[in-house]
């Protein structure tokens, strides 16, 4: 029988399921590769920088030379990134801040050249599917 009490119960259940889904999506930790290799996307080439310092979500930065690849952990679907392009003596030449969305595990690699070159999404095919 659908009365007010049962309606409230069903509503509560729906809210709890939605809350669970939100917690799952926003709290999920992803392993993300960070790549500083030249890449071609949709026919356009994005060259690698000689040295970059990359920090995700304000955390400890990673330092990558041209051709380097590293791995980090990010939590949730939306992220901020700060990339500093360095010269050989370690001086900052250019700083770029921005944000990006986690797409999926198969697209689990962040391409620094694609981000710096203004590609539609810096997330590219991961070298290893989890």
């Amino acid at each position: 029988m659908f009365n007010r009490r049962n309606g409230f119960r069903v509503g509560l259940l729906v809210v709890l399921v939605l809350l669970g889904a939100y917690l799952f999506v926003s709290g999920k930790q992803h392993q993300m590769f960070v790549d500083n290799k030249e890449i071609a996307l949709d026919g356009k080439a994005y060259p690698a920088e000689a040295f970059v310092r990359v920090a995700f979500d304000g955390k400890e930065p990673l330092e990558l030379a041209s051709g380097d690849r590293d791995v980090t952990q990010v939590v949730g679907p939306a992220h901020t990134v700060k990339i500093e392009v360095l010269n050989e003596s370690g001086d900052v030449l250019k700083t770029l801040d921005g944000d990006f969305q986690w797409v999926s595990t198969p697209k689990g690699m962040f391409s620094v050249p694609a981000f710096l070159g203004g590609a539609p999404s810096p997330m590219v095919d991961s070298p290893r599917e989890e």
Binding site: L19, G20, L23, F24, S26, G27, Q29, H30
Partner: peptide, 16 residues
């Protein structure tokens, strides 16, 4: 197992 971390992981664990 689902790799949900932080306070959200704790809340989800409590919900389950």
């Amino acid at each position: 197992d689902w790799a949900v971390v932080g306070i959200r992981g704790l809340l989800l664990a409590a919900m389950i």
